[in-house]
Design a protein around this nucleic acid. Sequence first.
RNA 1: GUGGUUGUAGCUCAGCUGGUUAGAGCGCCGGAUUGUGGUUCCGGAGGUCGCCGGUUCGAACCCGGUCUUCCACCCCA
Length: 456
Amino acid sequence: MAQKPSIPKGTRDFNPAEVAKRNYIFDKIRTEFKKFGFQPIETPSFENSDTLMGKYGEEGDRLIFKILNSGDFLKKANSQAYETKDSLKITPSISEKALRYDLTVPFARYVVQHQNEIDFPFKRYQIQPVWRADRPQKGRFREFFQCDADVVGSKSKWQEVEFIQLYDAVFSALKLKEVSIKINNRKVLSGFAEVIGEKDKIIDFTIALDKLDKIGEEGVIQEMLTKGISENAIKRIQPIFNLKGNFTEKIAGIKEILRDSEIGKEGIKELEFVERAIAEIPLKTATLDLDVTLARGLNYYTGAIFEVSAPKNVKMGSIGGGGRYDDLTGIFGLKDMSGVGISFGLDRIYLVLEELNLFPEAVTHNTKALFINFGDQEALYALKAVNRLRAENIIAELFPDDTKMKKQMNYANKREIPFVILAGDKEIQAEEFTLKNMKSGEQQQVDFAELVKFLS
RNA sequence: GUGGUUGUAGCUCAGCUGGUUAGAGCGCCGGAUUGUGGUUCCGGAGGUCGCCGGUUCGAACCCGGUCUUCCACCCCA
């Protein structure tokens, strides 16, 4: 070992069992995406920096992986920024490309660029990795997969209803219970800011509010005060810190507060619309919860905001999120294109399923039967059978080397291959096979037709 | 980006206030068992103690740096 190899911080290798489990999740998500009528697209792993920079806020810019220009990039570098060691300033002059940070902005770019070939409303899904230069933690990686479904070109609130149904469908398919789909509306948050006369501080206000379940009422108030929101203002919206009850009861609670805010009332109307529809078409396993403190989201959400939390007993951040953005494509020059979408965090869902032991046993098992290799003549006989089994869609393989049987059996055992097939002189003579069940240890001599029957 | 934390065999971990040749379990390889795996028994291989430097007669152990892990903040899937 000359040098211990390693992979970059926050990235991972996946072994066959892990890939199988990941694919299991991918399959379920993809199946539901298709069932709901979404169509797949893919975009490059890296984009022009201009496409990404400035779309996720200051924090986001910092977390975008920049790609160094090729060639003698220092020659073209901003020399003034180089002299003063100003990293922020020098970056655009030495890096023109950046790794995809999420799937929504590239999608917006895609829509604008291909607007003339797209039939609106356009429902697309996209399952690809994204990269963030974040400091890794549990459930937080520098390379991870997002599974997004979005609709652009429709303002209909039925889409919000559909996405909630889609969340429910996926988590039902994954047999993941007690998932909570939290919903809020940006207009309600705007209403709050308006009512307390701090409209220009809406970002600070919502960020502080979002931390309610983490730092508590006291903490939130403290943070709001330090952000310059007046004590009086805070008093006026204090009731929202203690909203109790079901969806309808919470709505009633904020109606009072937002009585004088047009935008706030609009938000309430939208929430009520969604709630009523879901009441008529009940969810299978997930629950829909109103959370007026939910402020997640990139600054482009304008209407509904979604966040999906894992079951309470699992310590994991959100496993999905989404919302409506009325003007996402506007930044790329296409006005009036409302979009709404959701995202599934594949890697986090994986950790949750793993922790709750929800992966089906069969996911990792592949090869059904292994033929023991007794030598060239026998191997040829075996390989012929392997070929015929494959034609029957049965996964079979021949052990490549003519080694000791113990070794070959051991291999089958470790790989958890359920059947081993032995074919030596006497089987070849009879044109049969000895089929051994590795679990029970039983074995019997059968012809090919019976072999197929046992292995299908 | 800020603060903390972790790193010893393939894996999980021992290793005393610094003191000769760094241990265990599991796994791996070989044999008992040349057409029968899982169990048992016997034997064996495998470690620049994350990396670089410093202190010391002497460093896995102390100090500094760096990388990595996990955690909190920030933010998020």
